[in-house]
Each structure stands twice: as C-alpha cells, then as structure tokens.
Design a protein around this nucleic acid. Structure first.
Lengths: 123, 123
DNA sequence: TCCAACCTTCACACTTGTGTGAAGGTCAAG
DNA sequence: CTTGACCTTCACACAAGTGTGAAGGTTGGA
C-alpha cells in the first residue's frame, strides 16, 4: 500500500510517516518507481509508534523497543547483548513509572469529575 | 524554601522550576527581596509536573489538570464550566489510551526480557 | 495528449522542553 | 568591607516533533 492509503487508514499525516522512516522506526519497501510500499503490518506498527510518541517516548528508544513488540515467540534474541538487555530493563522500569504517574493523575481527574457531577446532581 | 532547596529535594534543575512558574504550572510566593519562596507542597507538585511532562502531557494541559489533583474534597468546583468539564473528560480518556498503549508495550518488553532470560538459562 | 491525483525530495519554520551562561542583586560569615 | 554562595532576569542555542509548501517525477483516465 502507498503512503496515502496508510495515512488514511491510520490518520497519521504523510509527513509523519516519512519521519518515521527517516528515524528508522518504520521503513517501508520501495516500488520500482520509488514510491514507498507499506505492508499490512505497517498499520499496527504506525499506530503503535504514534502511541509511544504521544506517551513521550523518544524515537531513539522506540526504535530499540519496537523489535520486541513484533513477535514474542519469533527467532529473534539476535544480538541480544547484555547491554541491550540492560537498556530494555531500564526502559521497562521507566515505563512502569510513567504508567503509575499517569494512572494516579487520571484517577484523580476521574474522581474530580465524579465529585462535581455528584454535587451538581445533588444541587 | 528557596529554589535551590526545592531543586535539591526534587532533583529538578532550577531552570525547569523557573520554567514551571513561567508557564503557570507552579507559581511560588516571593520574598521581600524577590527570591522565590516555595511551600512544602511544592515538592509533590513539582514531581507530579515532571512526571506528567515526561509522560508527554503538554504544559497547557497540565495547568488545566493540576487543580483537580490537589484536593478532591476541597471547595473547588469553582468555575467548573461545562466546557472545563468537557476538557477534563477528554483528557481523562486520552490518558487512558496512553496508559493502555504504554502498558501493552511495557508488558511486551517484559515478556521479551523473560523469554530471553529463560532461553539463556536453558542454554 | 494532457490533466488530475498521486508520489518524490528538500527546506524553511514553529513550538516545546531543556541547557548554558552573562550581568547583576542579596546576604551571611570571615 | 569583602568574598562566596545564593538569588534574579534575560537571552541565545539546540533537539525533537510537526506543519507547510516548492519543484518536480509517475501514471491512469478523459
């Protein structure tokens, strides 16, 4: 599929899809005429990238982390250096912290909303 | 407490604390000599701000959301406009999405790590 | 054949969050 | 009174993510 189609299916601007390629996060094949050629998997992958970017993860890290998100039971464990594993573990932990922070804040907001709604109802 | 002390207690650079003030997220009192004067609560507040920033939430939104995180049972519900409530609800939902994305990714990374560890152990 | 709708690369520009440092005020301790 | 460790504001700089658009190639249908 070409970039326009992927863009429509994901809602991600063409510009951003090119940026994902430029940073090595999502590199499509190329047709003979030079057009980008994305496979079906790219849909999920692009959405995942956007989600992580929105969650504040820098492209550098996304690039390192994405391979693990493809297939857990695949052949990988390729150049699974001790160093790579360390990076992944640190990333896992910092993600957990972020999740906690976000969850606490979201719950507080939700409580607030419920409180206000309750008060207004009672009034 | 002065900015240096808050910086040391939170690990947040002075520069950033000033930035938090500039953007209206954390505005301290001022001493007679012009020095910033932070109260005890500012410690938690600053940490919360940093957490949300790291989670990709823009200052604009943090500013809107922070008041709800202070005290759920306080007098607020001040200018709780219909519009404000809408913003909060949308923010709550988008936070939930982020949490889901992060959680899925983190779990995948954790599984990957465990798989590799298991494989290496077995080898 | 030619137009419309795609695609390409390239480049400028803006916002945000952050680092760094200059120029200068305050204040306590020697 | 001076020195050192704070503080102030201001400003320049940079990377990342994103928008916009120019200049030009490809291709399918009227």
């Amino acid at each position: 599929m070409r970039i326009g189609a992927l863009s429509e299916r994901t809602g991600i601007p063409r510009r951003m899809l090119r940026y994902y390629e430029e940073t090595g996060m999502l590199v499509p094949d190329r047709c003979a005429n030079g057009y980008r050629d994305y496979d079906e998997q790219s849909v999920d992958r692009a959405l995942q990238i956007r989600g992580l970017l929105e969650a504040g993860m820098p492209t550098r890290v996304i690039k390192q982390v994405l391979p693990c998100l493809k297939a857990t039971k695949a052949i990988h464990i390729p150049g699974a250096t001790q160093e790579t594993m360390g990076i992944l573990e640190r990333e896992r932990d910092s993600m957990s912290e972020r999740i906690d922070t976000l969850t606490r804040s979201r719950d507080a907001i939700a409580r607030y909303i419920d409180t206000v709604r309750g008060t207004q109802e009672a009034a």
